[in-house]
Design a protein around this nucleic acid. Structure first.
Lengths: 108, 108
DNA sequence: ATTATTACCTCGGATACCGAGGTAGAGGTA
DNA sequence: TACCTCTACCTCGGTATCCGAGGTAATAAT
């Protein structure tokens, strides 16, 4: 729905970093992995994912490498960089601060 | 920082509803109350707040009433509506689902 | 031969945040 | 009086993000 879409803003990048941090992944794989790990909660759109990957690569947080799959089809595998790892650590910490602040106001 | 700004997206409305649900408040007051309750974490800007209040009022979730303060200055106090109360309940629930999904991926 | 799936991509519309700017009244001070 | 500060409201333009729709091309299945 429209609301989840808004919530996602600003969280896409950290989520992608978090996954790529586990192992190198390619775009199409990430979409499924995000859905799987979030138990179906997140359904990342391609129009969201690919620009985000390019954004992260441009920022030097991940690095893409073309590699053929067993079928011969080319895939762009993204690897996390040292800088990306540092940023991920910072983002996770910020997330906690943010979630705490929201819940202070919600009074949960 | 820029990142918190992005995280805020989509959360402003629920946060405002949550505060106005406690008691009728006016804009200027809300800015301070948000900062106080979040222990300084959120610093809501006027350019964010006032459009958000108008948005919520237009959606029928809150209702503004002009009332003079003791000094005689006019303030627009916002009251939550029944619809607003329902939406708040839904938003809180959605927040929990969202926070859970993020943490599933973060592996926190 | 045709369809489905994998896998990548871009573009434009809608929406939200924010900084900067503006208006105006009340209170204090020189 | 003149000035400044604080309260209290507002709008506008720039920037960034998400998403749906559309496109390309290869492989796999029918």
């Amino acid at each position: 729905m429209a609301y989840v879409k808004e919530l996602l803003k600003g969280n896409t990048d950290p989520l992608l970093l978090s996954l790529i941090n586990l192992r190198a992944m390619y775009g199409y794989e990430i979409i499924k992995e995000v859905a799987r790990r979030s138990e179906g909660y997140f359904k990342l759109n391609e129009g969201t994912l690919y620009p985000a990957l390019h954004r992260l690569e441009k920022a030097g947080l991940i690095e893409g490498r073309w590699q053929p799959s067993i079928t011969g089809q080319e895939r762009r595998y993204y690897h996390i960089t040292d800088k990306g790892h540092d940023v991920l650590t910072a983002r996770r910490k910020e997330w906690k601060g943010f979630a705490r602040a929201v819940e202070l106001i919600f009074g949960v």
